[in-house]
Every structure is written in C-alpha cells, then in structure tokens.
C-alpha cells in the first residue's frame, strides 16, 4: 500500500487547521470600528474601552496579534471569556462530548433510514417506494431544521408525553435517560442527513448495478440475491463512505440549530450564546474546535476510504 497518501492527507489536514486559526482570528478583526467599543457598548468610559483593548491585545500590530493568538491555541489556550472572565478552553472541553455524541447518533439515524431507502429505491427504480423515497428526501432537504425540531417537541413531548423536550444526561450516569434525551434532537438532525444520503446511495447503487461485472455475475447464472450482496453492494459501499463525508459539513451546520432548539449542552449552543453576549474569545474558541472536529472526521473518512479501496493509487 502506498502510505505516502496517508502522510500527505495528514499534512493537508494540519494545513487546513492552520488556515482555520487565521479565519477564526479574523472574526474579531472584521468587527467594524473598535471591537472593544462594540463589546462594551456606547456608554462605557474611554478608560474601560482602553483597558479592554489592552486585555485583548488589540493595540498590538496585526501579525503580532495573530501569532500571539496562534501560540495560545497551540498550547490549548483560547484566552478568557469576556463575560465570565474564565478561561475559554475548559468551557470548550466539556462541550465536545455532547456535540460528538449527538453528531454520531444523528449520523446513525440518518444511515439507518437512508441505507434501506436508497437501496430499495435503486433496486425498484420507478416504483411507488422509489417515488415515495424521492418525495421524502426532497422534503428533508427543504424543511427548516428548527421548525421540524419544534414540531417534534410539540407532538412527542408536549402532546404525547413520550420523550423529554430538552436537556441532557451524561451516558455514564444513566444510559436510558441519555437515550431518551438524545432521540428527538438526533431524529431532527438525522432527518436532513437521511434525505441527502438517500439520494446519493440510490445513485451510487444504480451506478454499480449497471456496471459490467454485475452483468457478468448475472450472466454466469448467480442468484439475484448473490449478485446484489456480493458484487453490487460491496462496490457501492465504497462510494457510500464518500457520501457520508460529503455531508459532514451539512450535519454539523444542522447541529448548531438542533442544539439550540433542544437546549443541548454542546458547542453549537455555546457558539450562539457567545454571539448573543458578544463574547468574541468564546466564539472564536468554539468555532475553532468545531472546525477541528469536522476536519478530523473528514480525515478519518478519507483514510477509511483509502484502506477500503485498494484499487486507488493516490498521486
């Protein structure tokens, strides 16, 4: 196997993370006028504005500011929250777990729906099931996530009383309670993922079904079941891994909304709180950590793809 690709892919991920530090750093730089004045409001005294400028390092030259910020990030230091004056980093670490759990369960929900739906609509292309799956996935990519979340809460929590409307219990404390809290948010975020993936899985499977080796397998008299499971599905799986990677960005976008609607103690909700409180260091730390999570998941998927598909030679 050509491990040069693995090394290259790792370096690229590092480069992306480095670039992200710059983009995240720029968040405070593009604040119109004086960020310290914007944060403190129009009635703050000039002295306190000047004090905050110094605390944030805003009076230093641009590149010095960036490299100081970068040096902090490398050491796991994201500065102090403006509101609570506490370190940003410890607030972030506690949020990664819940966000990651929600992302993974949403992805599982999405796959659990998309995999059978995509397969069946490819195998029975043009049937009522196929059309139904297409309509379902069109609704899924078009529905506003927060609206769907609210509707699910009204139906399943407030009216039927089946599941709690919001909140979080750590899985280590009470797994059953954890599951009851994660189901509604995961279904909300997973519905969008399922819709995107159903379409891709359907077309990946259709591609494979028309390939020569599938025709050959049929021609040599294999049972249709074997043709599909041993020849078509195996090859379609490789594409399906790519498909999961393609919608990671969309999945995490959706999670921001879902976390807010369901009061889930993750990074998305923390980011929105930071925005509403104008707590820029907290916002920067949160965006950075989410971007690193997305990059790591994508890296993992690319490497998985590489190990699954020995045919591909990466230059």
């Amino acid at each position: 196997m050509n491990y040069q690709y693995v090394v290259q892919r790792l370096l690229l991920a590092l480069l992306v993370v480095l670039g992200v530090t710059f983009v995240v750093f720029m968040i405070m730089q593009i604040v119109p006028g004086d960020p310290a004045r914007v944060i403190l409001g129009p009635y703050a005294s000039d002295e306190s504005v000047q004090g905050l400028r110094e605390r944030l390092g805003l009076n230093r030259p641009f590149f010095e500011q960036y490299f100081r910020w970068l040096a902090g990030v490398v050491q796991g230091d994201f500065g102090q929250s403006l509101l609570s004056s506490q370190e940003v980093a410890p607030q972030l670490w506690g949020r990664i777990g819940p966000s990651f759990e929600l992302a993974m369960v949403s992805l599982l929900v999405g796959l659990a729906v998309a995999f059978p739906a995509g397969m069946i609509s490819a195998l029975k292309s043009g049937s009522a099931i196929d059309i139904g799956a297409t309509v379902f996935s069109q609704i899924g990519v078009s529905v506003p996530t927060f609206w769907m979340g609210i509707l699910l809460v009204i139906v399943f929590s407030l009216n039927l009383g089946l599941l709690p409307p919001s909140g979080y219990t750590p899985i280590t404390e009470d797994p059953a309670d954890w599951l009851s809290h994660i189901l509604l948010p995961a279904i909300t975020a997973g519905f969008v993922s399922a819709s995107i993936m159903t379409r891709f899985i359907r077309s990946a499977m259709l591609d494979v079904l028309s390939a020569n080796y599938v025709q050959t397998a049929r021609a040599k008299g294999l049972a249709e079941r074997n043709v599909i499971v041993r020849h078509a599905l195996r090859n379609a799986l490789i594409n399906i891994v790519t498909i999961i990677g393609l919608q990671i960005n969309a999945l995490f976008s959706g999670l921001v909304v879902v976390e807010v609607v369901f009061s889930w103690p993750g990074l998305g909700r923390l980011a929105l709180n930071a925005v509403l409180e104008r707590d820029y260091p907290l916002l920067q730390g949160t965006v950075f950590v989410v971007a690193v999570m997305v990059t790591v998941v994508n890296l993992f998927i690319d490497l998985l793809y590489f190990f699954l598909d020995p045919r591909i030679e990466y230059a």
């Binding site: 593009i30 604040v31 909304v257 925005v275």
Partner: peptide, 24 residues
C-alpha cells in the same frame, strides 16, 4: 483551493453566524 478547503472546514451556518456576530 486550499483557502477554499479552510472555509469549507467550518460548518456553513456556524461560519455565517460568526460573520454576522462580527459585522453586527
């Protein structure tokens, strides 16, 4: 394209929220 990779690593909605937070 590497610059585009960087922007694409940040979930679209989160990046939009951060930009609005900065610009007002």
């Amino acid at each position: 394209m590497r610059a585009m990779d960087v922007l694409y690593a940040i979930p679209a909605l989160l990046l939009a929220i951060a930009i609005v937070a900065a610009l007002g």
